[in-house]
Structures are given as C-alpha cells and as structure tokens.
Computed example of a mutant assay.
Amino acid sequence: MLLTLLPLAACEAPTQSLGDASRATAWRVAVERAEADVFGERLYLSGTLTAERQARLSTRADGLVAQVHVDAGDHVEAGQVLLELDPAIAHQALLRARAQATEAAAVVRETQRLVVEAQRLVDRRAIATTELAARTAAFDLARAAEESARASAREQEEIVARHELPAPFSGVLAEKLTEAGEWVQRGTPVLSLVAIDRVRLDLRVPQERFEQIDVDAQVRVFADALNGESLPARIGARVPVTDPGARTFLLRLLVDDPQERLLPGTSARAEISLSHTRQDTVSIGRDAILRQPDGNYSLYVVEGDGGQSVARRRFVRLLHEQDGRAVVTGEGVEEGEWVVIRGNEALTDGQPVDVVEP
C-alpha cells in the first residue's frame, strides 16, 4: 500500500496526506531512518610494492667468467654459488705463496737449531756470546718472515675463494647481466637478486595526516594478486620529511606475505585505521548514496513543506562502506531523518514524493 506524506516530525515516520492532484505528480520512493554511528576513520592510499632486500651483485675479484649457474627467474638460497670466475692464475699464485710459507718455515727450523747449538757452545765457553746474539736475531727474523709468508698464503686463499659469487640472501634472480667468457671487474653488476619473502609498501601520505598515524595503527593491504583477500601489515617507517611539491611524507609498510603472493614492482592499496574517531557520523543504506559527476556524494531526505512531502538533496562525505551500509558525516544528514533508499535516481531537489512504507 502506498502512503502520502504530511510534514515530517524529527523522529516520526511519514504519514498520509496528499490530494489526488498531488498524487499524480509525486514520485514513489522508499525510505529508512538515518542511524547514529561512531566511526573510526580509515585512510585508503595506493602505492608501490618493493622488496625489503634487493641487490645488484658484482664479483669479488676481477677475472674471466667461467660459469654462470643461474638464470633470471631462478629461486636461490643464501650461500648458493651463483657464478664462478676462472681461478687458474689465482690458484698458481696460491701455490707459490704456500711454497714460500713452507720455505720460511724451514728457515725458522734451521735458525732455531743454530741458536740451540750456540747456547751449548757458549756454556762450554767455545764461542763468544756475540755469536749467540747474532744467531738469535737471525731466528727472530726468520720467524717474522714465516708469519709474513703464511699471511700471504691466507690472502691468496681468500682471493681464490672470491672467484666464486655466493648469494648473500635467499630470493629470486631478477636479471642476468653476464655470460661465460666475459671479463668482469669488481663493481660491475653481473646479477640482480630480489628477496620476495618480505615486501614493503611505500605510500605518499598527505602531510596533515602525520600526527594521526602512529606505529600501532591497524593496517591491511589489498592487491590484485590476493583475489579480494587482504594481508596484515605494520608500519616500518614514518619519515617526517615532507615533499615540498606534493606536501606529502613517506610511510613504509612491512607486509606479512608468507605465501609470497605479492610481487615487487606492482601496485597495492592500504587501509589504515586512524587513531581518532568521529562522533558526527550516521549510518544509512548504501543505495541512498548518489555519486555526482564532480566526484562528490549526495542523498535525498524527505521533509514536509506546507502539507506536501518533498525530497531535499543533501551533500555528504562518504567515510566508509561495507556489507551494504555506508557511513557519512552528519553535516549532510542527521540521526532520525528519513533518507530515500529507492527511487532516488531520478529525483530533483524539492520534488514531491509518495513514500512506500519503510
């Protein structure tokens, strides 16, 4: 049954009171009451996912590339050998250094024997004490030469070891920048490695939001790869330096992605629950909200006007919507007012309406 309207009291449902002529021009609508709602404001921002760790790897020595064990897209573990240089020359230098260390050790043994012999002869007064002192000095010099030779051998061992390039952390090879047969030098990138077990989301946040976002804020991250799901995140860094051109600051989120579904370089959206709440909000059905061409939002409320029920347009700020409900600021609509939820698409401001029972 359709009901016409008398002027609406603040908290009373519309009542019937229209003549037949008015009925012919009134637009049929359905309404519901606006309900009070306390809203913890949420901030929605988009940004770019980046890997928490990524590196352009270079060899630890100059040399000729002998083997590249990986290719772009390969998963590698920390410590896995990715590339080898030809170690032939370095290996020969290592053999020479080891031989010199062996020679120095032999000299130490011989000079030590001479010192022991000289000590016995001095005790028998067969030689002068100056001879013992000379042999002792020669022994000390021999020991120093041995230490130097052994250090040179250890250094050369490290040089040989550096002809292999291990993975500094687990991840995926993003780029392969060299091939076997190329001569490379230290500092020249040969591989690009990206860790995908931990990703971060960099956001540019309006500067006026800086004080509202604290380290304990609840954060959820949404991305195309998640198929509508979300992942928890936490604030890793809040850089208090604004971009003077955009008036924004950097907010870096650390995303927990154990299944490695998020891909570095892709875009994602973050939902941040701000630390303050609003008391001037009301909850209404989502169908009541109309999006304007300029991007703003409006709705219609039913008011009484000289014995006629009419629709009045109110502009609102949409804060949040979920499960068919929308939360808007109370500046455009107040608690208890009747809001049009059906038949509002073709309404105009001030148009007479017939209200279906809510």
Rank of each mutant, 00 (worst) to 15 (best):
A24E: 10
E211M: 08
R125H: 12
Q218S: 11
E52M: 11
P206K: 01
A134E: 14
D71Q: 12
P352N: 04
S152Y: 04
D197Q: 13
A137F: 14
N227M: 13
V301N: 02
R124S: 10
V310W: 07
G79T: 01
T15K: 14
V316P: 04
S275R: 12
A99M: 06
T266C: 00
V282Y: 07
E303G: 04
Q92E: 14
V65E: 00
A118K: 00
V333K: 03
A66I: 06
R186E: 14
L3T: 11
E337P: 00
P206V: 07
S58N: 09
F39Y: 15
V29W: 01
V241C: 02
V340P: 05
L6W: 09
G343Y: 00
A237Y: 02
P166I: 05
Q54D: 15
Y300P: 06
R234W: 12
G324T: 02
A26D: 03
A36F: 06
L165G: 05
A99N: 10
Q207K: 04
E52Q: 14
G63V: 02
R33D: 04
V340C: 04
D280A: 03
R314S: 07
L114P: 09
G304T: 07
V356H: 10
I272L: 11
V190P: 02
Q54L: 06
R162I: 02
Q185W: 01
E229F: 09
E110N: 15
R204M: 10
I213S: 00
V76A: 01
A101C: 01
Q218A: 11
T248H: 03
P166F: 03
V239Q: 08
R56C: 00
R125S: 15
N296K: 14
T242W: 11
A151K: 09
L290Q: 07
R238D: 02
E41V: 11
G47F: 02
S152P: 06
L114K: 11
L319P: 04
V316A: 00
A72C: 03
R269L: 08
L121T: 09
L318R: 04
T25K: 13
A138W: 06
L18M: 11
P358Q: 13
V199A: 04
A237S: 11
R313H: 04
A9L: 06
A66D: 13
R109K: 11
L263V: 15
P7C: 07
H75D: 12
L231F: 02
